[in-house]
């Protein structure tokens, strides 16, 4: 698969940027001719990953969140959401549905949503160094060469 487009986005971990981040990624994916449902899936998954960075990676401060995305000629999108925050001590536990460390009204469904709405989700994290969430999705119409 050949990469046909790439982008990199950097912003501070303010909750107001959650909307900006998901909309920017959705706009980047438009050349893949996504369906309304596919775009909704990606926006929701990106929103979950960015919210995790805002809430958990930088709990008492603001830090940088970086999104890198790539599109291939086969209609495949890879979206990485990276922070340099506190990291996740136990990724398996963090990904369990309903698990949350937040005292706020969080449903604990962030990773469950990402896994359900994307084709592949990978999480790499080092305590004290940060977390990278990689989201992947195949776009049906683009894969069949219409775009």
């Amino acid at each position: 698969m050949k990469t046909v487009n790439e982008m990199k986005l950097s912003f501070i971990s303010k909750s107001a940027n959650e909307s900006f981040a998901r909309s920017a990624v959705a706009a980047f994916l438009l050349p893949l001719d996504p369906t309304v449902a596919e775009i909704a899936d990606v926006k929701t998954a990106v929103s979950e990953a960015v919210t995790n960075a805002v809430v958990h990676a930088y709990p008492d401060t603001f830090g940088t969140v970086i999104i890198e995305a790539k599109l291939t000629d086969k209609g495949h999108a890879v979206i990485k959401i990276r922070d340099r925050g506190v990291g996740i001590p136990d990724i398996k536990q963090a990904m369990e549905p309903l698990y949350t460390t937040s005292t706020d009204e969080r449903a604990g469904l962030g990773f469950a949503v990402m896994q359900s709405f994307m084709d592949n989700v990978k999480v790499r994290s080092t305590v004290g160094k940060g977390t990278t969430v990689t989201l992947e999705k195949n776009f049906i119409r683009a894969a069949y060469g219409q775009k």
């Binding site: 929701t44 929103s47 919210t51 009204e105 449903a107 469904l109």
Partner: peptide
């Protein structure tokens, strides 16, 4: 028009 799991938390709360 759009909702992530924050909306689910809102309903549960």
């Amino acid at each position: 028009g759009f909702m992530d799991s924050s909306g689910i938390g809102l309903v549960m709360g």
